[in-house]
């Protein structure tokens, strides 16, 4: 009771957000029942036939189920890692730039690709990576004498291409959050370090990086929420029959079988499966961060 008296403003501050979450998120969550139904819009939740786990079977009982899930995990896992490392490193490099104008200039340019859509980028990549006189292959051939690489049509290269192009597109945008973390660092720390005679490298190691780490852990953990989203727009625009083996992911599969056919039950079931896996991973990394660094991510 005493607790409530002292802390009522804290609860109150949460009330507006909670109302929104209940109305627009928790109440609609009732729709999860569709995962266990052969949902028909005209029958609704109450009258659609219950099918138990049939919708989940559609995902797991295909000959290529393991292949597709594995592709998804690899592609999105690597994306999560590199979409964390690249902006992190880039923020460090940018932090060393003294001239404010140059810094802002670079910052602005690298965040531009985020605004390109994959439809457009797909077309550009097709040309740039072409084995038939594409820019990248020309450079590889003239500089290193390598035979043209079929980046988009070779099972050994497709994932690489997907990940690199995604990192390229997003690293500038991803840097923003780290720059904000850096902006929060108290400058007196650097001043003190300099008076102690610490080298720039030491300052980076002991002040800059530690001040970015919490945010990096948070961003990384939250990214796990997307562990089974390997980037539909990108894959859909880039994949082709030659790379189905390494490039077909859960979302492209859902698109072809559930979305295009209006199979809402199947779509919901797969969505639920993805959410459960994400939740488990987030739980694990939350525990790890708490145990190892005594840090609550959220």
């Amino acid at each position: 009771m005493k607790h409530l008296k002292r802390n009522w403003p804290l609860h109150l501050m949460l009330v507006p957000s909670l109302i929104f979450l209940i109305v627009f998120s928790l109440v609609p969550m009732g729709g999860i029942v569709m995962a266990f139904q052969n949902y028909k819009p005209f029958l609704g939740f109450t009258k659609s036939a219950w099918v138990g786990l049939d919708n989940f079977r559609a995902l797991f009982e295909r000959q290529d189920s393991i292949e597709v899930i594995w592709n998804t995990l690899i592609i999105s896992g690597l994306k999560i890692i590199f979409n964390l490392l690249a902006p992190f490193t880039f923020a460090l490099l940018l932090n060393e730039v003294r001239k404010a104008f140059f810094k802002r200039f670079v910052q602005t340019l690298v965040y531009l690709p985020h605004f390109l859509s994959w439809v457009i980028l797909g077309g550009i990549l097709l040309d740039v990576l072409s084995t038939d006189g594409g820019f990248v292959n020309q450079i590889l051939t003239s500089l290193f004498g390598i035979k043209p690489i079929f980046f988009l049509g070779d099972n050994n290269w497709f994932r690489f291409t997907v990940i690199v192009s995604d990192v390229w597109k997003e690293f500038g945008f991803g840097t923003i959050v780290f720059l904000a973390a850096l902006a929060n660092v108290n400058p007196s720390l650097y001043e003190a370090a300099e008076i102690d005679g610490a080298s720039r490298w030491k300052q980076t190691l002991h002040i800059t990086i530690p001040s970015m780490l919490p945010i990096a852990v948070v961003v990384g953990t939250l990214a796990l929420g997307n562990i089974l989203n390997a980037g539909f727009d990108q894959i859909f625009n880039l994949y082709n029959p030659l790379v189905y083996q390494k490039g077909d992911i859960i979302d492209t599969f859902v698109y072809r079988t559930a979305i295009l056919n209006g199979e809402m039950g199947l779509g919901t079931a797969i969505g639920l499966f993805k959410s459960v896996i994400s939740m488990v991973l987030i739980l694990v990394s939350y525990r790890l961060a708490y145990k190892l660094a005594n840090y609550r991510i959220f």
């Binding site: 109440v27 609609p28 729709g31």
Partner: peptide, 19 residues
């Protein structure tokens, strides 16, 4: 945890549309 839960789970388009 409630916040995170709503971020990860979703009932999909149909119930949302109804709301």
């Amino acid at each position: 945890w409630l916040f995170v839960f709503t971020m990860i789970f979703s009932g999909g388009l149909v119930p949302f549309y109804i709301v």
